[in-house]
Amino acid sequence: MTTASGMPAIRESLQLALLDAPGGTPAVAALAKAAVEHYALNYSKHPPALLLDEVHRSRRLLAVAVAVCTDEQVGTALRTQIGWLSALLGNLCHHLADETGARTHLTLALDIGERTGEPSLTGWVSGALAMVANSRRDWQHALDHASHGLAHAPGGLRRAQLLGWAQLPALAGMGDADQVDAVLAEADRILETAVEMPGRFGYDLAEHRLHAAEANLTLRRYDRAARIALESIAAKAENTPGWAAASLVLALAEVHEGPDAAALRALDVLDRIPAARLRATARSRLARLERQLSTVDAAPVLDLRERLRLLPAPIGEDGVATA
């Protein structure tokens, strides 16, 4: 468990260690790795803007240490953690609708992963770059990033993650149903025996089911998408970002048969998830649902339309995060 006050304490521990060893030591490198793990494991417990600020401050501490480090092994270890922190920053930017920021941080993380010989970092960041490309419907670049990740990442669950998170949405976007089914079948086989990994850099059945539901939704297999989305919802704790994502995918699958029910489901998400914790990915699904309900004038739909009109943007016109 973590708290809002616990996050700055992690950074302060790193700062205190660097006061005695400005260029770092093996112990400082281990502490930096523990800090990355803390941020990754508790990623969903904090508003994205708050976590982004903490991760940025910690990365800056390590950057100063690397600049004066004289031990090659320690320097490589610190650079690796800078890479993981940059990966987190890229993901956080994506969840704050800052796509250029996301690409910037993720490109740096990819470069560090390749230069330090960290295949897990290279693979994960390639998946994240594919995610960003998929969000702008740039299917070919998403497939290229996914292929790069699959060529570098370890097998097992890391491969399933890249198949489900990175490759699957692009293939669905291209309308390649046969390849979607083939990729899902391979990833499903891996997940049958793989040990799930927690945290932002991990992968589990609930997330995999979310991507599978969304791919089927894109292919207009609405009944199948709804069934799989329900499986994802059942595997997630209520009122978490993953729960919200799966609930909104379910609403999108339901909208054609029951627009009122879909609007009520979306309103339930807005009632349970504060605006500061509502990721840009959820906002995108809500906007998509609103467009699909544009010709419906039922009371729940009108209520949803008004709630979305009043929802503050993730980042305001003055550049200050509202999420």
Rank of each mutant, 00 (worst) to 15 (best):
L14H: 01
Q15K: 14
A17K: 04
A21I: 03
P22S: 10
G23Y: 02
G23Q: 09
G24H: 03
T25H: 04
T25W: 04
P26G: 08
V28H: 04
A29T: 07
A29L: 07
A30E: 14
A30F: 05
L31P: 06
L31Y: 06
L31E: 11
A32R: 04
A32D: 02
A35L: 03
V36R: 01
E37K: 14
A40N: 03
N42E: 11
P48H: 06
P48T: 13
A49T: 06
L51N: 11
E54P: 01
V55K: 00
H56P: 00
H56Y: 10
H56K: 11
R57G: 07
R57S: 10
R60N: 13
L61Q: 03
L62I: 08
A63R: 09
V66W: 00
V68K: 13
E72A: 14
E72T: 12
Q73G: 07
R79H: 12
Q81W: 00
W84V: 06
S86Y: 05
A87N: 08
L92P: 04
H94C: 10
H95F: 13
H95M: 07
H95L: 13
H95W: 12
L96H: 04
A97Y: 00
D98F: 00
D98S: 09
E99M: 07
T100F: 01
A102R: 02
R103P: 05
T104F: 14
H105Y: 15
L106Y: 00
L108P: 01
G113V: 14
E114L: 10
R115K: 15
R115N: 13
T116E: 15
L121N: 11
L121H: 07
W124L: 12
V125D: 03
S126P: 10
G127R: 01
A128S: 11
H141T: 15
A142H: 00
L143I: 05
L143G: 08
D144W: 01
D144Y: 06
H145G: 03
H145N: 09
H145I: 02
A146G: 11
A146D: 01
G149A: 07
